[in-house]
Structure formats: C-alpha cells, structure tokens
Design a binder for these strands. Sequence first.
DNA 1: TTTGGTACTTTGTCTTGCAAGGTATTGAAC
DNA 2: GTTCAATACCTTGCAAGACAAAGTACCAAA
Lengths: 110, 110
Amino acid sequence: MEKNVNTENVRAQMRKGVLEYCILLLLAKEDAYASSIITRLKEANMIVVEGTLYPLLIRQKNQGLLQYRWEESPQGPPRKYYAITDKGRAQLEEMNNAWNEITTTIDNLK
Amino acid sequence: MEKNVNTENVRAQMRKGVLEYCILLLLAKEDAYASSIITRLKEANMIVVEGTLYPLLIRQKNQGLLQYRWEESPQGPPRKYYAITDKGRAQLEEMNNAWNEITTTIDNLK
DNA sequence: TTTGGTACTTTGTCTTGCAAGGTATTGAAC
DNA sequence: GTTCAATACCTTGCAAGACAAAGTACCAAA
C-alpha cells in the first residue's frame, strides 16, 4: 500500500529531527546502554535501529555530551552504560528551548 | 562562539524534520510562490534557503502533493504559484497525526 | 562444543540540506 | 538603448546522517 509507505516516511523524517533530543532526555533520567535505549524508545513509539543509534551515541560522546563506563551483564557480554555530562545537560537545555520554539512555530502555521 | 554554533545546529536539525510539514501547512491556507514561502517561513522563525526549498517543492510536486501555475508578476519575472492538491491534503492529515504522536512521545520522555 | 541470546561495531548506499553560482525577466536611471 | 538593481527560478557539488545488513564477541545452557 502506497499510503503506508508514505505514512512511515512522514513519521521517520520527523523522528530524525528529535532523535538526539530524545536520547538526551532519556539519559538525563538515568544511565542506560544502547540495547536498552532502543527498547525504551520503541516503547515510546520512537523506532530506532542499531545502525542509527551506535554512531549517534559515539558522536554525542565525542562532543562531550555523554560519557560511558563498562558494566558486567548478568548474561552475555558487558554493557556500555552511557551517562549524560554537564555539557550534555547544557545542550539539553538548548534543545528544550529549540523544541518549544518549533512547537510554537507549528502552532502558528496551523 | 562554540555555543552559538551548537545552538544553531540543534535548531537546524529539528527544523529539517518538519520542513515539509510546514510547507503543506502554509499552502493549505493559500497558494504561494517559492520566494514568498521563504519570506513567510522566515517570519515564522523557520529559516529556509533557496537551495533547500526549490528541490523540496519539486519533490512534493512529483509526488502529486502539489501542483503549480505560472502567474505574471507586477514586477520582475513570472511567478510559479504552488497549490496543494487533494493528495497533498491527505498527506497533510497524516502529518498532523504524525506530529501529534511525536509531541506526545516527547512529553512522555520529559 | 554447539546453539541461542545478548551486545557492540562497521560498511555501503541513499537521501537530503545547503552554500554557491547561474540564468532570466522587468523597470528605472543614466 | 544600455546598464543597474530587484525579483525569481534552478542546478551543482559537498557533507551529514539514517538505516539495512553483515560482522565480531561474550556467555551460559544443553
């Protein structure tokens, strides 16, 4: 069905714009490792796949917004737990502002 | 200033996700030509440049969401007025739904 | 020692935003 | 009648990033 494809594209494009924002929102609440982030964003209707998330986390870490530590897993290989840094919290502030502006803009255009 | 650059990046990224949505919102209200769309989005704090908008309008037209007609200008070259089609309005519906879902998701993550 | 589950990483492709440069039309100034 | 400024539209080349797919590695249980 063409319609479904289109619908998914629409959602996908909008998601992209706020993905980094969502990651920081999530990590501002508590530390997490990549696989758990994917699960939790999926629960929140924000589909992400590994090939997207891993490079994104590395980018954010390289920008100093995140840091990580290794932790043993009860089962399977060790997990890379990411935590938000002070710089990351500052960036999150900016993103909150940006998000508020965007929503205001859209409301005005409606 | 590193901070300003970052801030602009944050806003730019979020804007991208909703640009097509904004165009359809705008054209749903009244027909417009590219230059006027740029001006009006700028007024609404949604920066767009020609190199972004022209290809985007062509894409949306090729998808059947828009159509255009030429109109004489009181001054300068003729203008290409874009109008939203029925298919475009259907897409706009989808986008409204998608937007509502995204905002709900973000609220839940906050 | 093989199998299945968990986790992290990389590669290649495709889309898309944008800076920069280009073309065309019109009217007014010189 | 030619230059200039304003208005419009369009294209090219680069860079960033999302994602599918494939790869590597660890662990425990059968």
